[in-house]
Design a protein around this nucleic acid. Sequence first.
DNA 1: AATATTTTATACCGATAGGTATATACAAAA
DNA 2: TTTTGTATATACCTATCGGTATAAAATATT
Lengths: 188, 188
Amino acid sequence: MSVLKDKILLVATDLFHTRGINSTGVDTIVAVAGTTKMTLYKYFNTKEQLIIEVLKKSQQDFQSWLDEKLNSNTKKPADKIQYLFDYIEEWVNSSAFIGVGFIKASAEFPNEENAIHKLSSLQSREFRQFISKLAMEANIKDADGLALQLSLLFEGAAQAEQMKRGSGAIKYAKKAAKILIDGAIKQS
Amino acid sequence: MSVLKDKILLVATDLFHTRGINSTGVDTIVAVAGTTKMTLYKYFNTKEQLIIEVLKKSQQDFQSWLDEKLNSNTKKPADKIQYLFDYIEEWVNSSAFIGVGFIKASAEFPNEENAIHKLSSLQSREFRQFISKLAMEANIKDADGLALQLSLLFEGAAQAEQMKRGSGAIKYAKKAAKILIDGAIKQS
DNA sequence: AATATTTTATACCGATAGGTATATACAAAA
DNA sequence: TTTTGTATATACCTATCGGTATAAAATATT
């Protein structure tokens, strides 16, 4: 990938999170990235396409980071779900955390027919399925149900952190997750 | 309140939720409301002021509805928290539900210094305190902690419903809430 | 009925939105 | 060294943004 395309993606990601997507013009992006609109539109057909690529990259980066964290922990796969919120907490509390892309995007593009909204919805669903897989490996009976509940805690905590940075919401989300996981295990 | 001001507020509320706040221009609002910009700017100094009044009214309406529901149920105040998510479910599943204003607004105005963001943050905090009061009346020890957890479920479910209408997330949020409430009561 | 006052409608303001036509700078290939 | 193709920069397009000056219409007062 071109170094400039990468720079544009990086800058756009930051600006979208700190100023909002619709409030960030392409002129601002290229100015901060130190390039021009012609260059931007060479790599991205439209602003919508840029938004979509930003969202995809953000989610991929997070998933990769999370996968590695979970795998570096050499425990049995069945135990991964127990550590999920520890890593989520680490991620949320890291200085690099600037929010969850698909949460913000779905708010700015509420129309369910919109391509960006559809992608956000898909990413949310995929993350839930990822949790569900962890739950299944932990032999939890209602894996999908637990995954949905944990994803609500995750999205709620991300939301809370967006409203007030350093809210500490994730700490309580983690506690709630433990209660729900333990309860689900008992019934399995 | 003037009938036209009321109409503008109503139309703006709907458009903000269905199209997004930043994506809805004042021209569109007055066109749908059947009036003109001069009239709008007579009642609201700026678009920001209109947004703020829309947010305040939305939250007041929801709180009033919820209060009445909780009070019409003639149970002891200590039991109200047990029914909280039943009413939230009713509200979310009603056809009138179009989302939670402060959640969307905080996503569109991420800057913590922004007046709209500050209001969103305040409303989220106030709702959490409302839940905390219910928890205290139910003699729950860590009322604030439980309230925070329940608010995460609430905001997560609202988020999920925003991503995919009719997701059924609220049903599982309700189940999770029951587990957390029962657990908190046991420790009190 | 004539005047005074408020409300509404039209037309416009500069700034910025996303996007592009054209020209120039710069490589690599010949 | 000249040619050829690609990447970059400048300038500009139309549409729309939030907001307003001004004039017409409607209402109230005398």
